[in-house]
Computed example of a mutant assay.
Amino acid sequence: MRIGELGAAAGVSTRSLRYYEENGLIRSERTPGGWRDFDASMVERVLMIQHLFAAGLTSATINELLPCLEAPPEERTGVMEQLLAQEVARLEAKRRDIDRELDTLRALRSETALVGEAP
């Protein structure tokens, strides 16, 4: 399957697919003419990568997770659970930071609204 076909099948741009390949997330063989040739199984892999990016994971974390996700359950070592727990903690900390920033902005907005009122 050529890169354009993979992109169409997975709903992803060829630019994204090149990025995924550069970062080791997907792989292809090269034809004698130098064209990328992807196995049909890459469609499911690209869809999984898209879901993981949508969850806020980095390409480095996704690269660590993919072998765990593709391994049969009896061969999993717990690495995936650790990585996912770390990502949940990172996102929860980010949410706390955003909530704190929102509280500060709301307080500032309330204070400036009061300054403009006549006594």
Rank of each mutant, 00 (worst) to 15 (best):
M1K: 01
M1C: 05
R2F: 02
I3D: 06
I3N: 06
G4R: 03
G4S: 11
E5P: 08
E5I: 02
A8S: 07
A10T: 12
G11K: 06
V12R: 09
S13I: 04
S13G: 15
T14W: 05
L17A: 14
R18V: 12
R18P: 10
Y20T: 08
Y20N: 11
Y20D: 10
E22L: 11
N23F: 06
N23K: 13
N23M: 06
G24P: 12
I26H: 01
R27D: 10
R27M: 10
S28M: 03
E29P: 02
R30L: 10
T31E: 05
T31W: 00
P32H: 03
G33E: 13
W35E: 15
R36C: 07
D37N: 05
F38S: 11
F38W: 01
D39K: 01
D39Y: 00
A40L: 04
A40D: 09
A40W: 00
M42H: 01
E44I: 01
E44K: 14
E44H: 12
R45A: 10
V46M: 08
V46C: 07
V46F: 04
V46D: 13
L47H: 06
M48T: 15
M48L: 14
I49M: 10
Q50L: 06
H51I: 01
H51E: 13
A55T: 00
G56Y: 01
G56V: 01
T58M: 08
A60M: 00
A60C: 01
T61F: 00
I62A: 04
N63L: 02
E64P: 07
L66F: 03
L66E: 09
L66V: 05
L66M: 08
P67F: 09
L69Q: 06
P73V: 04
E74N: 08
E75Q: 14
R76F: 01
T77L: 13
G78D: 02
G78Q: 03
G78W: 00
V79N: 08
M80S: 13
E81F: 00
Q82L: 13
A85K: 11
Q86C: 02
E87V: 01
E87S: 12
E87P: 05
E87D: 07
E87Y: 00
E87H: 14
V88M: 08
A89I: 03
R90D: 09
L91N: 06
E92F: 00
A93K: 10
K94Q: 15
K94I: 05
R95H: 01
R95W: 00
R96D: 15
R96M: 09
D97Y: 02
D97T: 07
I98W: 02
D99G: 04
R100Q: 15
R100A: 15
R100I: 04
R100H: 14
E101N: 14
E101T: 15
L102G: 12
D103Q: 10
D103G: 15
T104A: 14
T104R: 13
R106I: 11
R106C: 07
A107G: 09
A107C: 02
L108G: 14
R109C: 12
E111I: 05
E111H: 13
T112I: 12
A113E: 08
A113C: 05
A113M: 01
A118Y: 05
P119D: 07
P119T: 04
P119N: 08
